[in-house]
Measured scan of single mutants.
Amino acid sequence: RIEKCYFCSGPIYPGHGMMFVRNDCKVFRFCKSKCHKNFKKKRNPRKVRWTKAFRKAAGKELTV
């Protein structure tokens, strides 16, 4: 099963990425440490230029 990165919305293939479980049992999956570090710094994915959330908000990503 291919999961989605919580921060950048990129695909996470089986055996890859990192799973972060908070004390309230909420699960966050990250494709790379870059995404996990930005999440820990409480960065907003919509303001980080390389994420899909930014591209969609800025009108750069074509949605079908």
Rank of each mutant, 00 (worst) to 15 (best):
R55P: 15
T51F: 03
K40N: 08
K41V: 06
F39E: 06
R29S: 07
N38W: 01
S33K: 05
R43L: 12
K42E: 15
R22S: 14
C25A: 11
N38L: 05
T63E: 14
K42Q: 12
A57L: 05
I2D: 10
F54L: 10
R46C: 11
C31K: 00
K42R: 05
P14A: 02
A57E: 15
N38M: 09
K41A: 08
L62M: 09
V48D: 14
C35G: 00
M19L: 08
G17S: 07
K34P: 01
S33I: 06
I2G: 09
I2N: 10
F7R: 01
D24K: 01
R46P: 14
P45K: 06
V64I: 08
M19I: 12
K52I: 14
C25W: 06
R43V: 11
K56C: 15
V48L: 07
W50T: 12
A53N: 10
K37I: 09
F28A: 05
Y6D: 05
F20V: 10
V27Q: 08
L62F: 07
H16F: 06
D24H: 01
N23K: 02
I2S: 08
K34A: 11
C25Q: 10
I2C: 03
V48Y: 15
R1T: 13
R29W: 12
A57V: 08
A58T: 07
R55M: 14
K52Y: 11
L62H: 07
I12V: 07
G15W: 01
K47T: 10
G59V: 10
F28T: 05
S33D: 13
T63F: 04
C31I: 00
A57P: 09
T51K: 06
F7S: 11
P45L: 05
T63H: 09
Y13K: 05
P45Q: 09
V27I: 07
I2W: 05
Y13C: 06
C25R: 06
V48T: 07
K37Q: 12
K40D: 13
H16N: 13
K26Y: 04
K32D: 15
K60F: 13
R55L: 13
K32T: 14
K41M: 07
C31Q: 00
C25Y: 05
I2E: 12
F39N: 03
N44L: 04
K34I: 07
R29P: 08
N23C: 04
V48N: 07
L62D: 14
